[in-house]
Each structure stands twice: as structure tokens, then as C-alpha cells.
Design a protein around this nucleic acid. Sequence first.
DNA 1: GCATTAGTTCAATATCCATTGAACAAGATA
DNA 2: TATCTTGTTCAATGGATATTGAACTAATGC
Lengths: 123, 123
Amino acid sequence: MSLPHPETDQITLPNVLAALGDDTRLAIIGCLARCDASGGLVCGQFSGLTSKTNLTYHVAKLREAGVINVRPEGTKRRVTLRRDDLDQRFPGFLDSVIATAIDLPVVETTMRELESATKPGSA
Amino acid sequence: MSLPHPETDQITLPNVLAALGDDTRLAIIGCLARCDASGGLVCGQFSGLTSKTNLTYHVAKLREAGVINVRPEGTKRRVTLRRDDLDQRFPGFLDSVIATAIDLPVVETTMRELESATKPGSA
DNA sequence: GCATTAGTTCAATATCCATTGAACAAGATA
DNA sequence: TATCTTGTTCAATGGATATTGAACTAATGC
């Protein structure tokens, strides 16, 4: 964990809601919801959503709010949902968000990334 | 319902999250969560939160996102949570938000309003 | 060592969003 | 009718937030 992440008990609802109240970031969460079981995703796999620079910005927002975990992996950054932490802090919240976010439309470029990510042996 | 409210199936998660991702609006929801059983609140009872003008703005945001219902009552506006609609659309979501929002600190002026609102015969 | 890949930093801009005050409208009350 | 209460509208402002491109760093592979 070389990047700063808030402790579980420092995650606040206002921050989480503000972080999720953005289309780009909600799309990131939707993608993660689909692929989290297969080890999460790396930043590059969100490339269909927006520019590389902008992605850095939005991923940082989600990380700082405590919604995701970002772990360096070589030159890449592996992104996962902080499911347990959020469940502990706001029971039922993440599940209800994911249930809807997972159905949000995804651009085709990103869709292909997700498909290859969920294939066995891709993590 | 003289003011425009979205139909239940037009309420979207991105809009709801964006509406709740603001401290003033989350405070309004917290107040409503305490008092909704006793018939909701009128705008004036949120006066401790911000200015009158600004309140109109935030209440409109919540109404347009489908989070609250606003019903004219003489010169007043009665505000209630759209519990059933939100539960139907995003099961578990509102409950998990309220469970936390109800514990958020409330300014004293507003606190007094809430106390008088929950007294029997005040609705 | 050199090029490639993956992501970051920084400064600039653009856009959106919250906040304010003055003037207004509508209903209640006398 | 005059006045008070409650909330709205509008235009203006300030501040935050998203987006961009250029230059950069760090790890990987040849």
C-alpha cells in the first residue's frame, strides 16, 4: 500500500457519496463490480472511459474517499473495490449501489477489456 | 403535485448519488429521516442549515433527482422522503444512507426545529 | 543502455455548482 | 385592503471540480 488510503473508520458517507456522484467514477465502480471477483482491474483497462490523465484524477478521488484500493504492480496499478471496509462502515450500501451500477451502459472499448479480464487466467 | 417530480422509473442512480453528494443536502435528508414519520418538514424548518434562497436551490435539486417530494401547503412547502419509490428502485440503498445520515451532526437551530416537529400534534 | 509500457505531475483552462442579495409572488391574517 | 409569512426567481459571483496536453518518472524487456 504505497499510496495513501484512508483507514476504514475514516471513511465517511459524505465523501463516499461525493466520490460516487460522478458519471466517470460510477462507471469505474460498475466495471469493478463486474470484475472484482477475478482480481480487479488495472487503470489501463478503463481507457475507454476517458483520457489517461483524467483517469489518474478520478481513480485518486475514489481512492482518497476509501472506495477503492490501488496497489502498484510493476508499472501498473491494480484497482479493487474496498468491499469489506465499506460493508463494515455502511452496511448494505455498496451492494445496493453495485446492483444498479453493474447495469449501467459501458462503452464498447471498455466492454472488451472487461470481457478479457474475466476470462480465467487473466489476473 | 404542482411541482415537477420525476416518475419512479425515471429516478436514476447517478442523479441520486450526485444529489446526495453534498453536505447541505445530506443534512436535509438526515433531518427528514428523523421526522419523516411525523409528516415530514416544511422548508422553513431547515433554516439553520443555510440561507432561504440557497435552501430553495438544494430542495429543488433533491426533488429533481427524485429523492424528496415537495407539496405546497398554503405558503409553505411540505417536504417528505420518497421512501417507497427509492426502495423500489434501489433496494436497501436509502436505508443504508439514512442509517448513517441520521447520525450526522445537526446545528442547534435546526435541532430545535426537529424537536418541535416530532412532538405530537405538530404536523 | 535504449526503447517501451503504464501511469503521474503540473499548469492552464473550462465548466459546473453553490452561494448571495434584491426584487418578486402567493397565501394567510387582520 | 394592507400586511405578514413563506418561499421563488433572477443575475451575479466565487469557488470547486473536471478536463486537457506536455513533460516527466519508474518498471520492464530487448
